[in-house]
Amino acid sequence: MVEEFVVVSDLQKSFNEHKAVDGVSFSVHKGEIFGLLGPNGAGKTTTIRMLSTVLVADGGEITIGGHSMQRESAAIRSIIGVCPQELALYDDLSALDNMVFFGRMAGMTGLEAKEQAMANLKLMGLVDRAKGKVAKFSGGMKRRINLAIALMGNPQLVFLDEPTVGIDPQSRNHIYENILGLQKKGMTILYTTHYMEEADRLCNRVAIMDGGKIIAMDTPHQLKSQIGPPEKVTLEEVFLRLTGRSLRD
């Protein structure tokens, strides 16, 4: 029996007259890596912002870990972690101080936050740079710290919004391994990316969004098999066929 950890039903969000999210429904199973794909302006970020309690939906329902977004958003914030696309870090603070600060915001004591920060830094291969100022870190190191902060407070669900954008293959590979490691520990992950091979490699299922709607949702294997032999078709080909080749933004 698959446990649905995230249930989204008929989600709506408009900015002025523009419908950014238009009747989106999906569910994410516990312990699953669920990919949310789509071209720029498809409504991915708005959807994640509503799921992560930053934006209030105009309509529809969200339930995370059994908590209703409308009534229990505080409870939802206590079980989620967010790794935004921007490097949401305080450059003037050390890696450790950044992590301890966000750990405290996640409800940890100072000691707990420090212990977990060191553990997460070890996981990210940055323990020797714990006291270094983030401003002096490379792009890849900052990305890893960005991810490590999202894990503070042991969240049950983590939103990873393009966590590997703009970094070298080594750092990217390190992050992939960490994400798969988190899944093995039972963490549920909602993942967005523009790298289709990344989604293919990591995600159990993906939803492809365009124009504020979900236009396809299945496992990467099933999506690929809709247009040809899965071993010969790439997820990018599926994506382009579904969303078209016209430029966005």
Binding site: R49, S52, V54, A74, R77, P84, A88, M105, A106, I149
Partner: peptide, 14 residues
């Protein structure tokens, strides 16, 4: 601008 606002608003901080 730093992106820390959104991150803060997804924590237990009200």
């Amino acid at each position: 601008r730093k992106g820390t606002l959104e991150r803060l608003l997804t924590t237990r901080l009200s």
